[in-house]
Design a protein around this nucleic acid. Structure first.
Lengths: 250, 250
DNA sequence: CCAGAACCATGATACAGATCAAGAGACTGC
DNA sequence: GCAGTCTCTTGATCTGTATCATGGTTCTGG
């Protein structure tokens, strides 16, 4: 029994190739929560962060209406957040990449307001919110950073609201691609050549469009020489054109 | 000179019929920030809240990209928040009624991410955020409440995203009316009979629709016996029908 | 109380994107 | 390595809402 447990643990950890990472040594620590902290405070944070959560593609990280315990940082892979409308359809509310934080919508009601699913194999850090809250009472920088993170989530949602309310299909797609490009650049990855982790369905859902429309927009942009599209591989050929297409408002 | 100042002050205050209100005696204190605090903590909060800000219709409370200082609580009247797209159009991102807090989108970048304008004569409390932050370090309840307020703003934005992305014109209008109805009820006002403080243009803008469409929806709903509409006066005649119309999703 | 300006309602028409349909490509598990 | 399934593309058609146009109503300031 004891042996079994050990071996299970070993298997679990062997999936997570960098399970020994700490916030201290994590290569995302300049864009994730640690950016607000000095070495001493980081040690404290370290104590509450749970680094062990390797996820398979399509696995759920948390589910709408379940008790809220933690917020989550993406270490690798990509996550989509979505809520289910009461006629059973999905609304994708965001995509989360390494270094980004999700789950903060659960704080207000003490249960998750959305669900989150891995779009590909992913490593996640769970940060128990009660402990984080206590910690932030003693660390003004951390408290400030949390307020800022939540505020940023609000402004990003407002941008999406504006996008959905005012922009054409081409502008919406262009804006998403530019957002992914910018976030890649932040992680020192290529800003012009990347692989989309999400399906056309998810993109359409997020942008308030149908799959067919997403396909057509990609085809049109490829024809126009703005993009090269090969299934999920995207190459931005004409950054300016893309930006211009996304630029008619916002 | 000194005299002039005094008299100006007097005029200023005379506009604000309940300027002597404190959080302690404010009739909104069960739905506003004070709800999280005991009498002793409330005294501390009292010291930083600025109660003096009577606004005329159309006056700006704060403007996009100006330095962020305070968040604001509505004491009376109604406020709309909006951002300006870079082709100069407006996107209304929210309406705020008495007891509600706005301005939290300014925290992340230390400048306001949106503007706010009075839809009618309004009284506002300004709460300097630096002071509030300090205070919340020593009051776990307050800190928790602020996190919850911000989290609620996120979930409400997500609801709007879903509405814009998935729902018909009728459903959007119905959802807005039900939201106003619910918020009125919270303040012990009529849930079925109220006056809209905003124009059709603002409603359309908020819901991603044109003025004409808003007009037509109101007319249709009146014809169907769901509403009585007399300019800005709304009477909900068939709550169920309205809810059903808003109910096809979310 | 009146004139000008907002604001609102309603009809006719246009169009972006949805829906329906069908086939091609890519991935999955045995 | 192949069958079945999911994902993506492209075409034809339909539709809800935008747009354009006009007149009525309400509000505002002098």
């Amino acid at each position: 029994m004891h042996l079994a447990k050990v071996s299970e643990d070993t298997i679990f950890r062997s999936c997570d190739h960098d399970y020994k990472v700490t916030c201290d040594t994590c290569r995302l620590n300049r864009i994730c929560i640690p950016l607000a902290l000095n070495a001493k405070d980081l040690e404290q944070l370290e104590k509450i962060v749970q680094h062990t959560k390797p996820m398979q593609k399509n696995e759920l990280l948390y589910r709408e209406n379940t008790p809220f315990q933690s917020i989550y940082a993406v270490r690798s892979g990509a996550i989509k957040a979505f809520r289910t409308t009461n006629d059973g359809r999905e609304q994708v509310t965001g995509f989360y990449f390494p270094g980004e934080i999700l789950g903060m919508d659960g704080i207000s009601e003490d249960r998750h307001a959305s669900s989150a699913r891995a779009l590909e194999t992913a490593a996640i850090c769970a940060i128990p919110f009660n402990a984080l809250e206590k910690l932030s009472s003693t660390m003004p920088n951390l408290q400030r950073h949390l307020f800022q993170l939540m505020s940023r989530e609000i402004t990003e949602d407002q941008l999406l609201i504006t996008l959905l309310s005012k922009n054409s299909a081409d502008e919406r797609v262009a804006t998403l691609l530019l957002s992914i490009s910018r976030r890649n650049a932040r992680r020192h990855l290529s800003a012009t050549h990347f692989r989309l982790p999400m399906s056309r369905v998810d993109i359409g859902n997020y942008l308030g469009l149908t799959v067919e429309t997403i396909s057509r927009v990609f085809s049109r942009m490829q024809k126009a020489g703005t993009l090269r599209v090969d299934n999920k591989e995207i190459e931005i050929m004409d950054y300016e054109a893309l930006h211009h297409g996304a630029n008619l408002s916002n």
